[in-house]
Design a protein around this nucleic acid. Sequence first.
DNA 1: CTGAAAGCGCTAACAC
DNA 2: GTGTTAGCGCTTTCAG
Lengths: 349, 349
Amino acid sequence: MVRVTITQVAARAGVSVASASRALNGLIASPETAAKVRDAARELGYVADATAQSLKRGRTLQLGYAVADIGNPVYVEMMAAIEQVVSASGYRLLLSSTGTGSSSVDVVRDLGRGYVDGLIISPLRVTDELLTALAAAPIPFVVLGRLPDSAAFDTVRADSPTAMRLVVDHLVAEGRRDIAFVNGPADTTPGAMRRDGFIDAVAKHADLRTRRIDSLDFTIAAGYDAALPLLDRPDRPTAVVAANDLIGVGVLRAAEDLGLRVPVDIAVTGLDNTELAEVVRPGLTSVDLGAKERGRAAAEMLLARIADAARPPQSVTVPPALVVRGSSSASAPSALRRLEPVDEERAHG
Amino acid sequence: MVRVTITQVAARAGVSVASASRALNGLIASPETAAKVRDAARELGYVADATAQSLKRGRTLQLGYAVADIGNPVYVEMMAAIEQVVSASGYRLLLSSTGTGSSSVDVVRDLGRGYVDGLIISPLRVTDELLTALAAAPIPFVVLGRLPDSAAFDTVRADSPTAMRLVVDHLVAEGRRDIAFVNGPADTTPGAMRRDGFIDAVAKHADLRTRRIDSLDFTIAAGYDAALPLLDRPDRPTAVVAANDLIGVGVLRAAEDLGLRVPVDIAVTGLDNTELAEVVRPGLTSVDLGAKERGRAAAEMLLARIADAARPPQSVTVPPALVVRGSSSASAPSALRRLEPVDEERAHG
DNA sequence: CTGAAAGCGCTAACAC
DNA sequence: GTGTTAGCGCTTTCAG
């Protein structure tokens, strides 16, 4: 199938390419010219070349989404929300996985190549190098995640401190007073935010025993590996707060393999409220950080920024919501098997 | 930050744009010219405009991935594999969700706009309209999934018949003789393939009671809704074969809510072997259809097709592998709680 | 080896 | 309203 250009359409319609272009774009044209061009275009199966239009118009109608770990369901959820907004606005979505190979800095640098009109970036680590690259970015962008206050960029964020307060308060209310935090890598932004949130949240309660562990990754396997030694000891905690749902599921698996009953012997919570939390048994208590809302907000913010480069930087924070399930509360609806009442456990607290 | 063009680089280097272009692209240029241009480019922070290059070269270095349901983990897994191959080859990946709004036919039609050099498409339904559009596609493409034999296109497929045979044979070996199939929508390609596979697989065994149900979607919720009435009756089956893992998990949930013990009262199997199957309890027996391999194969096939338009159409089938877990076999390693032996159940068969 | 010039396909002034 | 023309930024003949 041969590429048909506007020149051919114009020739067939018997008009100039300018008239053809105007007619095709719905600009001023006499009814008969418009009709002739439309017919010619249809007969030839003409579709305007996107590259040529981009070059001429200076916009590609493409937006980028750069994400480190596309294996994490949270980012997929965000991506789906972003895709929806983006395509509804006539843009196409370009996916850059910054995990393997190219770093997010490379992605930002590459922005100068002009193949996207804007970028949504969800960096796992915010380095000075990245901030510098962002400050020099030739096109609009929105950052999904927390940045230093000094960086006046458009951002969409989850509220980790509140999320952590929600789970910790919940666990304390359930009578847990020995609470461990299993983090992902602490040198990542989410890792740092959630760790700080945990520290602040437990500081609000008196007489709590707490400890913190970093796992190697925000994955089930890493959560499992980190939780195993933590739970396999006499003075194990009575509750584990995981930095995300994947780690949380890993903790559940570790408890299972050690023969511990959840939530009787040990309560577990996750973060993100992915479908995974709903589906495991017992259901994993989690905090919904509004991944879908964040994705949607980021996409809309980027479009607004593209429309108005001059507007002051925005920052949206999506509020979290606690979802209690069987992993932390025997009275939660989704607990499969009725276990012994946790009153005894409460008495320990 | 202002866009810097090759003209500016050439001016600064004191050479023509042609020489600048040649130097930048590593073509013939005197060492000193090359050095001057390189320095000028670095000082100015020059990066070649991708759109202009695309227009001139006639290739965008972009590939598309069109998928109906990005909510399904299988497609995410494929996408990740595709992204890896694609970006390693210097291409960018464009994501088109054909689920909401635009159909896959629209996506194929849009290919004429020339914003991608090739497409990997994973259509949920193969209509004549789609086949016609594909036959007229102006650029290379690879279809993930089964096509009519008459369509001589590049395809990468799972082997549904064998997959179904694996689960059915397994269930029969486990003593199940009353087997129900909970499908997704039967008017989809996977739905039709898996249904036919099930029918053929059970036909190989004598004295089997079988039944088939279509659920509304390949989702947990749809699987749950379809399974509930099936399992809530005295003559319920002793095994349920689900058309994918999501439906399988829905079946598990339905069994749970009805107080049925898995696998004692009812065995359940899924398909796709997603992480979900590994993570639920009891673990969901499933068949790995090689999503990652299929994604990788499709990407490589597309690149090969781009490199050689003339080569005959290829068709790769990725072999399936049964993964037995606790949902269908009491002796499977991942069963959490030791349940009663299934011997009694076997005696029924 | 280098520079001038053409042109990828399209849109947008600018005159008519 | 319409046609002519000039580019968008780049690569690539083609002479030199």
